[in-house]
């Protein structure tokens, strides 16, 4: 992680409430791995106070000698509202890349991305990596996109450009699938008979992850999920962004000495830091109802 002073190259609205920002940041672009995030200081005026964390959507060569990152964000509060008002040429102070991103499951054949709303951008860099491998016929990529309404559907074109099968579910219908992405996921795994040979990577609201839990356990499919929490520092100092985790599962996946997880004295749970141990967790590590 390091600090990089970046410049806004473009900032445009993709769909009502959803924006895409291009930032010239060659250092962070070169260092970021799929699922990692950056922490942006949205103002020098100390209000909004904290940096805002964003998973990197894509690292790109913008031409003209400019390389950097693209972020796709939704206006949800004061910080993102300030960001949406930024214009080309303005400076932004970044810290990154931060956190632990996705780990590719090389042992599986079918790789399913499951993204909902503003969680979708967090999956794109991984999608690009998987797409390259799919192009070499090393694996199959399936992309499942979820949106509440057709108006809130974003990044369809970008995901469709990857070497994969794209399926879209809209809660109120009008597209491939009428309903929730998790129902589409269950049907797909079942009908394709791929349970033994697939891996899921997901980003979306916690309710979506909760709905995935019984599917993953029924079919015994591994899933990595990118969690969201309010963050203070993003570097593991303030201990604000904790997430309740299952001890047994954490011990299965992690070297506990190099993690920031702290367990309770008795019992089978503890707290992990979303900023350092995450944002990507294995779905069975997370305890959703504290």
């Amino acid at each position: 992680m390091f600090r990089e002073e970046s410049t806004v190259l473009a900032n445009e609205e993709l769909a009502p409430g959803f924006w895409k920002m291009r930032l010239v940041a060659p250092g962070i672009a070169a260092a970021t791995k799929p699922g990692q995030f950056i922490n942006i200081k949205v103002t020098r005026c100390k209000d909004p106070l904290f940096r805002r964390p964003f998973t990197v959507f894509r690292c790109s060569d913008f031409g003209g000698g400019n390389t950097g990152i693209e972020l796709v964000y939704e206006i949800v509060g004061r910080g993102t509202r300030v960001m949406s008002a930024m214009r080309k040429g303005e400076g932004l102070d970044l810290i990154g890349p931060l956190g632990r991103g996705f780990e590719l499951r090389h042992d599986k054949r079918v790789h399913i991305l499951v993204g909902s709303g503003v969680g979708l951008p967090a999956l794109f860099m991984l999608g690009e990596e998987l797409s390259l491998a799919a192009g070499r016929r090393e694996l199959e990529l399936v992309i499942m996109i979820d949106a509440k309404t057709k108006k809130r559907l974003i990044l369809e074109e970008e995901f469709r450009s990857l070497n994969g099968k794209t399926m879209i579910s809209i809660h109120d219908g009008g597209y491939d699938y009428h309903g929730y992405v998790t129902e589409m996921l269950r049907t797909y795994i079942d009908e394709e008979g791929i349970a033994a040979d697939c891996a899921i990577y997901a980003c979306g609201p916690e309710l979506m992850f909760k709905a995935m839990v019984p599917i993953c356990s029924q079919y015994n499919v591994p899933a990595q999920i990118s969690m969201e929490r309010n963050m203070g520092c993003g570097v593991g100092a303030c201990l604000s962004c904790v997430c309740r985790v299952n001890k047994e599962a954490v011990m299965k996946y992690r070297d506990i000495r190099s993690s920031h997880v702290q367990f309770e004295d008795e019992g089978n749970s503890g707290y992990a830091l979303v900023c350092r141990d995450g944002p990507v967790f294995n779905i069975d590590e997370v305890i959703f109802d504290e």
């Binding site: 309010n230 963050m231 702290q262 504290e290």
Partner: peptide
């Protein structure tokens, strides 16, 4: 282990 999760809220000019 400390407090429950959801430990931080930003407020105007502070935390």
């Amino acid at each position: 282990l400390g407090s429950f999760q959801h430990r931080l809220v930003e407020i105007p000019g502070g935390s």
